[in-house]
């Protein structure tokens, strides 16, 4: 380490070396420039805006001239009775997603793997991947054509069978279930891909040995397939925990209506409604910051726990 040993030499020499090295790569810097400019402007510049959470921001004053109010936006946020409702909704949806939305693709992948008719498997995959490519707007529209009172085919069927129409879409009791089913419908099939790949990577000798030992199919799934895909499951679970409060912003925004607001307001919709619709920028920023920090904490905590348990984390 010449630079460390000759620390008394002018520091300029180190930078001169770096500069020479950089000039060698000038074409590569030039190529990266548009993307670097993008990340600086659209990803890092808005982070200054997070300071608004500590202001009482109005757009009529310049940024630094706004009133600095310390953490009072946060105390106001926590004392808002609606905050508790929103937190409950977000947590409920997050837990439901972890309990159902997360394991279903794993189960589905194992089931697909047990299918031995390749044509059936291929067609099944083609069909269950499809909803992933459809926008949330179309998904919401399809839900209306399924469940709405006047044009939903479920209601048409109920009427056809002589029953009374059911107001699924404005019923607060079934809102969470509807959101969960919608998510499963759209993404569970697509979610199988990564587990199918993990299963395909398992050494077939393990299964052959198990067959020799007389293990049943269920036994083989529990003792071979699941343990072998556990690392994949763990990594995806950590990533999922890092986005624990991302419970489907566009989706819920589209399915929200005044009658279900009590159960349909989550962090993102609250930040959006307060911050952009009502123009209370500082409140919106405070809510968003709170949510981002919790996500980051969850990611780091789950990664640490997983590493302590002896598995590999995501970083």
């Amino acid at each position: 380490m010449p630079t460390a040993a000759k620390a008394y030499k002018p520091i300029g020499r180190y930078w001169l070396k770096v500069w020479r090295e950089m000039r060698k790569y000038k074409f590569f810097y030039l190529l990266s420039l548009p993307a670097l400019f993008y990340f600086a402007l659209f990803r890092y510049v808005p982070m200054w805006g997070l300071l608004m959470a500590f202001q009482d921001y109005t757009p009529f004053k310049s940024f630094w001239n706004n009133n600095w109010v310390g953490v009072s936006q946060f105390t106001r946020m926590f004392s808002d009775p609606f905050f508790a409702t929103m937190l409950r909704n977000t947590l409920a949806l997050a837990l439901m997603r972890l309990a159902f939305f997360f394991p279903i693709p794993i189960a589905l992948a194992i089931m697909l793997n047990e299918v031995r008719h390749m044509a059936f498997k291929r067609i099944a995959q083609t069909v269950i991947y499809f909803p992933h490519f459809i926008s949330w707007v179309v998904t919401a529209s399809l839900t209306f054509f399924t469940l709405s009172v006047d044009i939903g085919f479920v209601n048409k069927m109920i009427v056809f069978l002589g029953g009374e129409q059911v107001t699924f879409l404005v019923n607060p009791d079934s809102f969470w279930a509807m959101i969960l089913i919608q998510s499963i419908w759209k993404e569970a099939g697509w979610g199988t891909i990564i587990f199918m790949a993990a299963i395909a990577g398992i050494d077939t000798q393990l299964y052959e040995a198990a067959v020799v030992d007389g293990a049943s199919r269920m036994r083989r799934i529990i003792s071979i397939t699941l343990p072998c895909i556990m690392p994949t499951i763990v990594v995806l679970l950590i990533l999922r925990l890092g986005q624990i409060f991302d419970v489907g912003f566009e989706q819920i925004l589209l399915m929200q209506n005044p009658l279900v607001r009590e159960v349909a307001e989550i962090f993102d919709t609250y930040a959006y409604n307060q911050g952009i619709v009502q123009g209370q920028f500082s409140v919106g920023v405070a809510v968003g910051l709170f949510k981002s920090l919790i996500g980051l904490a969850f990611l780091m905590a789950s990664n640490t726990i997983v590493r302590r348990l002896g598995s590999e984390g995501v970083y």
Partner: peptide
């Protein structure tokens, strides 16, 4: 081996786990 590569990649990867949120983006 390009100077600054690791720093740039770290800064880019950071945006995967942390973003400013809806309101600051809107104001920008």
């Amino acid at each position: 081996e390009m100077p600054g590569n690791r720093l740039i990649m770290a800064l880019i990867t950071f945006t995967l786990v942390f973003s400013a949120g809806i309101v600051p983006n809107y104001i920008l």
